[in-house]
């Protein structure tokens, strides 16, 4: 542990890695709450995979991968919506069709580029190699996402909880959906270096689910989820640095460990309390 802290003081790359992964922990945690409450976990997985072709095209054109990623991410979200609204294909199926297609095109594009090292980093993340420009991209995206959620909190709350009421009083629920998809794409882009495309869905849903087990208020859930995301990022980064493991994998497993703790010990929802309540109930009947 001391080694890690010493190294943190000493090495710029580790500081950048820490700042980036903390920001990723916060924004994935916050946006993830809305993803799981709206039943869109699969959508989170889909959008994260769908940025791959955009990243490849950006590398080919020599532009910041941010632009390509947002483009293909949002296009995929629109395509998914278009298919499920204009056919009898169910939403989860159209998600499956579209994101695998996007991901497959991404793999081909990257193979054409002939630089497989990049592919590995995009897929699995390598936060220790984060460049200053990427750190700044993550920070700017993070600020944009957090400000958006703060500003539209009320609308996101009501449309997530009761979209019929939201539509009945005139909120553009479809616009809100695609806005959220755009934010989700941005968050994925911001997380590329830290956890990578394949595992970003875990950062979206695991800390949020942990928080979901611990509270009955959305705003508390947002803060808790962000905090749990940050904690996972720091623990994961420490393990990644100390044992030379892929940062994406260690961060995700740290998040999973925290989820298991909440799943067992949560005061209202945890396994132990469920058992105790059941036991008490049985006792009261036995008397």
């Amino acid at each position: 542990m001391m080694n890690f802290i010493d190294a943190l003081m000493q090495y710029g790359f580790l500081q950048k890695a820490l700042i980036t992964s903390i920001m990723v922990g916060i924004i994935c945690g916050v946006i993830g709450c809305f993803i799981i409450l709206r039943g869109m976990a699969l959508m989170g997985d889909a959008i994260s995979h769908a940025v791959l072709p955009g990243v490849a095209i950006s590398y080919m054109l020599g532009i910041n991968f941010f632009f390509g990623a947002v483009l293909t991410g949002v296009l995929t979200a629109l395509g998914i919506g278009f298919i499920s609204q204009n056919s009898r294909i169910k939403n989860d199926v159209s998600i499956g069709i579209m994101f695998t297609a996007a991901f497959a095109s991404g793999i081909i594009l990257i193979t054409l580029m002939k630089s497989s090292t990049d592919l590995y980093h995009i897929l699995f993340g390598n936060v220790l190699a984060v460049r200053p420009s990427e750190m700044w991209t993550t920070l700017f995206i993070g600020i944009f996402v957090l400000v958006s959620i703060y500003v539209f909190y009320k609308e996101l709350l009501v449309s997530s909880f009761d979209s019929t009421m939201a539509a009945a009083y005139g909120l553009p629920t479809r616009v809100i959906h695609y806005f959220l998809m755009t934010l989700l794409t941005l968050v994925t882009v911001a997380s590329l270096q830290t956890v990578g495309i394949i595992l970003v869905v875990a950062m979206l849903i695991t800390p949020a689910s942990t928080a979901y087990l611990l509270t009955n208020r959305l705003w508390v859930m947002l803060y808790l989820s962000a905090g749990i995301g940050v904690l996972s990022s720091i623990i994961g980064l420490y393990l990644s640095f100390t044992y030379n493991l892929a940062s994406g994998a260690t961060i995700v497993l740290a998040a999973t460990a925290l989820f298991i703790v909440a799943f067992i010990f949560s005061p209202k929802q945890g396994l132990i309390w469920r058992w105790i309540r059941k036991f008490r109930k049985r006792e009261s009947y036995a008397r």
Partner: peptide, 11 residues
């Protein structure tokens, strides 16, 4: 959904 009774009415 993580929302209390009073917050639901507040909507």
């Amino acid at each position: 959904f993580p929302i209390t009774v009073i917050d639901t009415v507040l909507l």
